[in-house]
Amino acid sequence: MTTAGTSPSRSAARGSRSGFLGWLAVPALVFFVGFLIIPLLGVLFLSFSSWDGISTNIRWTGLVSWKAVLANPELIHALWITFLIMLVSWLVQTPASLLLGVFLAGRQRYRAVLAVLYFIPLLLSSAAIAITYKALLDPNFGLGAGLGIPLLTQDWLGEPVLAFGTIIFVVSWQFIPFHSLIYQGGVRQIPASLYEAAELDGAGRIRKFFNITLPQLKYTIITSSTLMVVGSLVFFDLIFVLTEGGPGDATRVLALDMYKTGWQANLMGQAAAIATILVLVGLALALLLRRLGGRRYDTSQLEGV
């Protein structure tokens, strides 16, 4: 991308001799096609079939699975819950990550120390985090019961609204550090001259934040939001371990709906239809957010510097 300076005749000569380089990409391509591209097509194909997931007897049944899935109110419910988790976790995580990222971009020694501790959650598996919180929030054996604080001894995972809130909290606990890390990098890219100019104009901290930091972070915000939104679409581990979609179906998101339909109800055809919806929604969201970001990433940001 950056090096285009060699003489054209020489690079052309090299190009013609190094045509065989394509073979170097073959091993990666085999795994990529075998476990991502074929499955991507396969999920669509399987959604027009019936399969119990145990035998290898897969029958072509046309639209039967789609009709069943689309007629099932569970799908609309799962879509709604997925959307709510996406929206609320975005609303919670974005401002928090942004503030923490700005804070951690400072180069004071104590902030570097804090950063070491802040980033611990992003090393842990969702399973470990979910199990920790399940134990910690247990109304009988958890932290609240041990401390004897009634406010903390609620049935956190047993009441629909509380369970939803708990999932948002745990998701934030796990992912805010990661997004803070992204914002930290973004803030450190902002040219100091912008702030110096603003200071000369007498701008205070809040005005600097809203007039410089926030606009300069536009693309960082879009990147982080894309990861958050598309990521929350396929949340599985955390919710599966914490609530298994319960109580009832209060936290049954699309990915969980797919799992339960496929591996518990043994309706793989329907599960594949749900997975297809998952793929389509994910692609639509990714494209939408990319459109929002515009095409040129590296020019307009530095205007007037």
Binding site: G34, F35, L36, I38, P39, L40, L41, G42, V43, F45, L46, W51, G53, I58, V230, L233, V234, F236, A255, M258, G262, M268, A271, A272, A275, T276, L278, V279, G282
Partner: peptide
């Protein structure tokens, strides 16, 4: 491509 969404064919493969 989200891994979660393509898991069914991966399982079959």
């Amino acid at each position: 491509i989200p891994q979660t969404a393509v898991i069914i064919p991966v399982y079959l493969i």
